[in-house]
Every structure is written in structure tokens, then in C-alpha cells.
Amino acid sequence: MLYRITVRNADGEKLEIVVEMSEDEVRALAEELRKAGYEVRVEPIPEGEEP
């Protein structure tokens, strides 16, 4: 499935990426980023919607 991941650092800089991963993989990635001090938001992209 496609997911949009938005990551912000302490300075407020934002990075937005689209990935194709399983829900478990995305959850693990988000958890690791949060542990590293980043603010993370994950949104699933519905099938048929443009990323």
C-alpha cells in the first residue's frame, strides 16, 4: 500500500515522502523516526488516488 510520510525536525523543516510498504513496515519506520526525535505523520493513500 502507498503511504505519505511527513517528517519534521526540531527546527520545523519538513520532508514529505511517498512509500510503498506494508502497514507493519511503515509503523516500524515511524517509530524509529520518533525515537530519533522527529515528529512523524503517516497517512495511507487510498487506491486510485494520486500520491
Rank of each mutant, 00 (worst) to 15 (best):
K14P: 09
A36M: 11
D11G: 14
P44H: 13
L29Q: 02
R41Q: 14
Y38P: 00
E32Q: 14
G48F: 13
T6N: 04
D11L: 14
V42E: 00
D24S: 14
V40R: 00
E39N: 11
V7Y: 15
I5H: 00
Y3I: 07
V19N: 01
L29D: 00
A28G: 09
L2P: 04
V18E: 05
E25N: 13
V18H: 06
L15R: 15
R34H: 04
E49G: 14
V26R: 00
Y38V: 03
I5W: 01
S22C: 05
E20L: 14
E23A: 12
P51E: 08
P44V: 15
E25T: 08
M1E: 06
E39Y: 07
V18Q: 05
A36H: 11
R8M: 15
L29G: 01
E13D: 09
L29R: 03
D11T: 11
V19H: 01
L15G: 06
L2Y: 12
E50A: 15
R34P: 00
Y3Q: 04
E13M: 14
E13A: 13
L33D: 00
I45W: 10
V19L: 06
E32V: 15
S22V: 06
E47C: 03
L33G: 01
D24L: 15
R4Q: 05
Y3P: 01
V7E: 00
P46L: 15
A36C: 04
V42I: 11
A30N: 01
E32N: 14
L2V: 07
A36S: 13
L2N: 04
P51I: 06
N9M: 14
A36V: 13
A10I: 06
G48K: 14
V19R: 05
K35F: 06
E47D: 12
L15A: 10
L33F: 10
G37K: 01
P44W: 08
E47G: 13
G48P: 10
D24W: 07
E25H: 09
E20A: 09
L33V: 02
E39W: 07
V18T: 06
E32G: 07
E31M: 10
Y3M: 03
L15V: 10
V18K: 06
E47A: 08
Y3H: 08
K14I: 13
L29N: 01
M1R: 12
E13G: 12
I17V: 07
A10L: 13
E50T: 14
V42M: 04
D24R: 02
V7L: 12
V26K: 00
E49Y: 14
P51C: 10
S22E: 09
V40Q: 00
G12A: 03
R8N: 05
L29K: 03
L2M: 14
M21I: 05
S22I: 09
P44R: 06
I45E: 05
E43M: 08
R34C: 06
P46H: 09
K35M: 05
G48M: 15
A10W: 08
A28Y: 14
V18F: 11
R27G: 09
E16L: 11
I45T: 04
E20N: 15
L15K: 14
R4T: 03
Y38K: 03
M1H: 12
T6E: 06
D11S: 15
E47N: 14
S22K: 12
A36D: 05
A28W: 09
M21L: 14
L2F: 10
V26I: 09
A28R: 09
I5T: 00
G48Q: 15
V26D: 00
N9A: 12
M1C: 06
R41H: 12
I45V: 12
K35L: 07
Y38G: 02
E31C: 13
R41D: 08
R34K: 09
